[in-house]
Simulated scan of single mutants.
Amino acid sequence: MVTATRSLGRTDLKITPIGLGCMQFAGAGLVARLFYPPLEQPAVTEIVDAALRAGTGWFDTAEMYGRGRSERALTTALRDLGVAPGQVPIATKWTPGLRTAGSIVRTIDDRLAALQGHPIALHQIHLPYGSFSSLTAQLTAMARLAHEHKITAIGVSNFSARQLELAHAVLARHDLVLASNQVQISLLHRDVERNGVLDLARRLGITLIAYSPLRSGLLTGRFHDQQARSGLLPFRRLAGGFDERTLRRTAPLIEELITIGRAHGASPSQVALAWLITFYGETVVAIPGASKPSQATQAAEAMSLDLSADELSRLDQLSRSAAA
């Protein structure tokens, strides 16, 4: 059975196994619009409300998501819902592209302003490349913010095993721990098992935060219906992996998600999320997005879904074929 909360790495922060990814709150920008419908503030507030009511205990956003628009939309929703600053953890990220490590310190007040009084529980380096400064310099800047109590914990995103080991060592020199690494993990994306990231995370006590845990909606099962596919734009089909070959290869996995879901009174997406936060033990948590309140509710309710060892194993085996 999934526990109510987990420690974020080896920090004192407690988070639920499922949080809410907030890229869809960006409101503008090419990437966000390709994958999510634009959301007005009332819709954002409804989604955040649904997530909280269903048990979601934290939120993940980023500077890159609309240049602060996602951060501001999230915290506006929290304010309107009467959630006090610090009541729920918020994770955000610094964008390294064409910047130096010094901008981590210089832009922290911008991040705090966008979060409108809500503290930064977890500050993450969004990518391991693109900066004019070394990873060591970037992590040293993050350490400075932690020691100045402007952030609580430090994380990274899309780091390899080698880069994780470096990050861990740099922070250790400042008497700090690396809390997390945000990477893509799902039943259809299991690279962390082969590239050393999962093994290293377990050894060092680093939480892996799984983004795209439903593989851009592919694991919901709704795109395996021919009529549903016909409404997809060509770019959305291909960029999301919805080409005919992929849909045929993943069909047995989707059918098993549906079968297991029926046995539990759950949707395929809930089964996929429950598998993800259970199969890897407490090392992996997930941050599905939601563009409707019902999606936020369903995602949070997946935390109470208790899959049997046999169900976990069947999905594991089918996943290995589907992810090929």
Rank of each mutant, 00 (worst) to 15 (best):
I206H: 00
F159G: 06
L115A: 06
F159L: 10
L208P: 04
A153S: 15
L166R: 06
I151P: 01
A167G: 06
Q182M: 13
Y129I: 05
G117P: 05
Q163A: 04
L166Y: 01
T152Y: 12
G196D: 09
A141I: 08
A143W: 12
T220R: 00
E193V: 10
T140L: 13
S160W: 08
Q184A: 15
L115F: 12
L188Y: 13
S160Y: 12
L145S: 01
S133M: 03
A141S: 14
G221N: 05
L200F: 13
I206G: 05
L214V: 04
Q182H: 14
F223T: 04
A167H: 04
Q124I: 00
I120R: 09
Q182G: 08
S186I: 04
A146D: 03
S157D: 04
T152C: 00
K150M: 12
P128Q: 08
L178W: 10
E148F: 04
L115Q: 08
L188V: 01
R222G: 06
D191R: 13
P128T: 09
I125T: 14
L139F: 15
V156L: 12
H224C: 02
A172R: 14
P213A: 05
Q182K: 10
A121L: 08
A153V: 00
R202I: 09
T152A: 03
A141N: 02
E165L: 12
L139D: 07
D191Y: 01
L219K: 06
L200M: 02
Q116L: 01
L115S: 03
L208C: 07
H126I: 13
V192K: 09
H147G: 07
A172M: 11
P213H: 00
P128H: 10
H147I: 05
Q124P: 06
S180E: 02
S212C: 03
A146M: 12
L145R: 06
H168T: 08
G217T: 08
Q163G: 11
I151V: 15
I125A: 14
H147S: 02
L135D: 05
L164I: 01
V183W: 07
Q163W: 09
A146F: 10
L139M: 15
H118M: 02
E193F: 06
S133P: 02
E193L: 11
Q184T: 02
R173N: 12
R173H: 15
G221V: 01
A210V: 14
H123L: 15
A141D: 00
G205K: 03
S160T: 14
D175V: 06
L164P: 00
I206A: 01
A167V: 14
L171K: 11
L187I: 12
Q182I: 13
L166S: 03
L219S: 00
S216A: 09
R215A: 14
L145E: 12
L200Y: 09
F223K: 03
T220C: 01
R222F: 07
A146C: 03
H126Y: 12
F132Y: 10
Q116C: 07
R215Y: 01
V170R: 00
L214D: 07
Y211I: 05
L145V: 08
P119H: 13
G117Y: 08
T136G: 07
